[in-house]
């Protein structure tokens, strides 16, 4: 058995097409209030380039390849860690007013399905009350 992945021309185009469509749909759901975390969050997602950098560096066999590979991993790691740090920090700042009683589960489910939900009656997930 061989688990080496092979993706040829048209298969790649199909993958790109479906993913682009999925991306458009997924991002279209995000309310304007979260556009800054969305931007840094998607920034974090393309930080997966560090995996490619690791592959390249581990397969390097000349000093030149090793040097460039080192920078690929260095920059990719910066992208991942920085993107995650700022996104997580910003998202942790969003709190609601804390009213809404015991309907937490219902509220959360409702918010998920609502398109541009800056949910009104969602119970605070966070313990911090303002």
């Amino acid at each position: 058995m061989n688990y080496q992945i092979h993706i040829d021309g048209f298969v790649a185009v199909y993958i790109f097409m479906v993913t682009a469509f999925a991306g458009w749909v997924i991002i279209g759901r995000v309310p304007a209030i979260l556009h800054t975390p969305l931007m840094s969050g998607s920034n974090f997602v393309h930080g997966i380039v560090v995996v490619g950098g690791l592959f390249t560096l581990l397969n390097a066999s000349t000093p030149l390849e090793q040097t460039i590979g080192f920078f690929a991993v260095l920059l990719g790691a910066g992208n991942v860690a920085g993107g995650f740090a700022v996104t997580q920090r910003m998202l942790a700042m969003f709190k609601d007013s804390g009213h809404g009683g015991t309907h937490a589960a219902h509220g959360a489910r409702h918010a998920k399905s609502a398109k541009h939900a800056a949910p009104k009656a969602v119970k605070a997930i966070s313990p911090k009350k303002t």
Partner: peptide, 9 residues
């Protein structure tokens, strides 16, 4: 899950 401030974190 970024579709709402509740689920985004």
């Amino acid at each position: 899950r970024m579709a709402s401030p509740v689920t985004a974190p």
